[in-house]
Amino acid sequence: MTQIAQIGDGGGGNGRRRGPAEDDPLGHDDPLLQAIEALADAPPERSLWPGIESRMARRPGAARSFTFTLPQLAMAATLTIAVSAGVSWLAMRPAPATPEAAIRAVAEPTDAVQGDVQRATFADAAYDAAVADLEQVLQEGRDTLDPQTVMVLERNLAAIDEAIRQSRAALDADPANTYLNSHLADARRRKLELLRQAALLSNAGEM
């Protein structure tokens, strides 16, 4: 130790060792090199490995060290975020709605046995007479009406007549259909009302 201390000091005083020449600071006459060369390479008195090995064997959980590159760490972070977000979404989303139960519709009562049903004939003499009278009034008074009014009235009467015709045809195929019967009745009522309105207009010279 004393020797080393001396070597360390170097006798220079300022910590910088100087050899005989300034350009050879670590020359062969350097005491440090001489001390190193003097050290003998003595083998250990006994093998140390068995002791080391036995101590390692007694620490089975000894941590292994891992090292990651920056891209690996970034990938791991991304994966962690994605998994966390997925778990959060699953936890936060509303419970799946149970499918709404279907409302069961009920067929309207089938109209008895068709053979037992007396089909409404709509052969109403009073109605037919009223229609004929009003049509006559309209015909006679059409000159008192604006031609455009006459045209519109006649077209709308034709539309109602078409509805009546279609309803009758449907009833022929399904005579017991209560809807068709009431629909036909509505159309006939509507025709009568429109004819009445037209007759009033013609009587009043439109108004």
């Binding site: 519709a105 067929a107 809807y179």
Partner: peptide, 23 residues
């Protein structure tokens, strides 16, 4: 826009329909 089970023999897109449902 909600499920309705039509009566047997009545289809939503063909033929005559006469039914009712209750809410």
């Amino acid at each position: 826009d909600f499920p309705i089970q039509l009566p047997e023999g009545q289809s939503r897109d063909s033929g005559s329909k006469r039914f009712n449902f209750t809410l």
